[in-house]
Nucleic acid binder design. Sequence first.
DNA 1: CATATTTATTAAACCAGTTTAATTAGAATC
DNA 2: GATTCTAATTAAACTGGTTTAATAAATATG
Lengths: 190, 190
Amino acid sequence: MKDLEQKIRSFTPVSDSEMEFGLQFYKKKTFKKGEFLVKPGQYIQDFYFMKQGCVTFYTIEEGITRVMEFYTDGSFFTDLYPYIEEIPSESYLEVTEDSTVYVISKSDALKVFDHSHALERFGRLSMQKAFINNFQRINRMKNLSNQERYLQLLEKRPSLFQRVPQYLIASYLGLTPVGLSKIRKRLSKK
Amino acid sequence: MKDLEQKIRSFTPVSDSEMEFGLQFYKKKTFKKGEFLVKPGQYIQDFYFMKQGCVTFYTIEEGITRVMEFYTDGSFFTDLYPYIEEIPSESYLEVTEDSTVYVISKSDALKVFDHSHALERFGRLSMQKAFINNFQRINRMKNLSNQERYLQLLEKRPSLFQRVPQYLIASYLGLTPVGLSKIRKRLSKK
DNA sequence: CATATTTATTAAACCAGTTTAATTAGAATC
DNA sequence: GATTCTAATTAAACTGGTTTAATAAATATG
């Protein structure tokens, strides 16, 4: 779990004994493409760290798939709102590429935070970072055109385009598949 | 500072002595409409709690004002990214209504988090809540029409419409003033 | 109170997306 | 390798915004 350990230490210093205490609760699991970590109706018991692979977080409303996020190598994730509120999820966490994740249960995560002030700080700082990322994403959505956002995604996360089909990327960008195709066509003509 | 204390305790239990330690660093300040907490180029030293009033967080790019958020009663806020990275802000935090805020410096906030595990947890949980709010806002932006988002804002934060001019609300919704006016007209005809 | 200034509305032309449907391309399966 | 199924593109009609400019309404100021 060197990768997870490094990731945690990239936020704040943690003593070896605290790190050891924390990591003991994480279980390594592998999933095949097409499996689900979460489906609507389920309660969320676990928190995840993506070691390697890709999970797509989406809902289906009135038959329309709406992609909220793609979690790839090095991301922490879960369906956070139902996780915290202890209500059933309304979403899917679908494995869209064979993946290896580390899993910790909510009760174990609480134990870790109770035991270690340093790891609680890591929790605060990682949440802060996630907050800022989202905030910047909101402002990109508001201020940039769809074409600009497509180009930016292409630049920032090029591997996504190998990993997931285009219509999911369209949904992530808030477009229809047709709309994204038009943008691509327009760009290719230049 | 009963309001701030209550707000903190709404997230997690904090002992009286830890609370006292934390609160001692907050200074009460009042600002008049039209004043600025932050302007572009400035470094962000402080973290704020809005006791009563309204602050608008925006940037101006190529002459266009882009409203990112309105902070009203009971919100924690600052320009977080430059605050953390210790780089100059590119934004404005403008007081758009006479306001009373509690202010804590970054160095004092660090002291508080070092001193108290419980308050560090409060920091984590408040950040988590802010993250979720933003995440839900992203998905509203993607999945709802502008009209729906206008109606939702009207319902969730009706006081905003008394507090700030409509063209700032238009910007917050990612619209032009003309666009928002058209939506209002369309709605009024029903 | 009158005037100046700012804010909101309206109109008209425009455009980047949508929807629906048909077609093509690519992947998986027999 | 042919067939089936899924994904991506294209076309056409439409729509909800945009931009620009003029006007009206509301607010601040002398």
